[in-house]
Amino acid sequence: MKVIGLRLALPAAVLALVLSAPSRADEMGGPGFSSQELRAKLDYCKTCHGLSGQGYRGYFPMPRLAGQQPKYLENQLRAFYERRRSNPVMANVAHALSPSMVAALAAHFKDLNTNPIGGAPKEPVALGKTIYELGLPEANIPACSACHGPEAKGQGEIPRLAGQLFPYTVKTLGNWSKERGQGPAKDDTSFIMAATTHNLTQAQVAAIAAYVGSLR
């Protein structure tokens, strides 16, 4: 009985979530898929990205999706699909998603608001806050807040950084030219970040990642 209860708890919770937002559910039961297919796909995303979209530290850090900007998620899924952002697993995932499904998934994750999973070092947070808010003028590093917003919530195609996994942000800040912008397309926004961050030291990267990872 206890086992049955636990097995039912997860689908029940997802169902409750969907039912609690009827207008959203109608919107998402949209073209090309049923609400049941959407639930199955959301469960699939959350297998790796956390049951509340909070992210998960597996062998690789799986980024937080909760509260992420829909436009950014759509752009990244397209970049995986077109192999501009190299990640064989996510390319595979993206190939099985229709544009309307992507829109529904992105809208769902935008509305999640779970606490950061933590695990970042505490000491460099103060330095990270300074760099985030003021930049490093002597190293030609602009303030992150100028684009990502004072609370790191992002906007449009600019991603939310608040609550992001520490190891994920660290990896991303050192990986622009290796992981992103791999295709011939000129409109890959990661080019901006490669130029913006290339003067950062490892310690400064860790400080920024620790700070944004602590934000709710």
């Binding site: 199955a40 699939y44 790796c48 597996g58 062998y59 595979n92």
Partner: peptide
Amino acid sequence: YELGIAEANVAACLVCHGP
């Protein structure tokens, strides 16, 4: 193990258990 089965919502094992 390495890629999962995206159409069937089967996750890739590799992302947590390593390459």
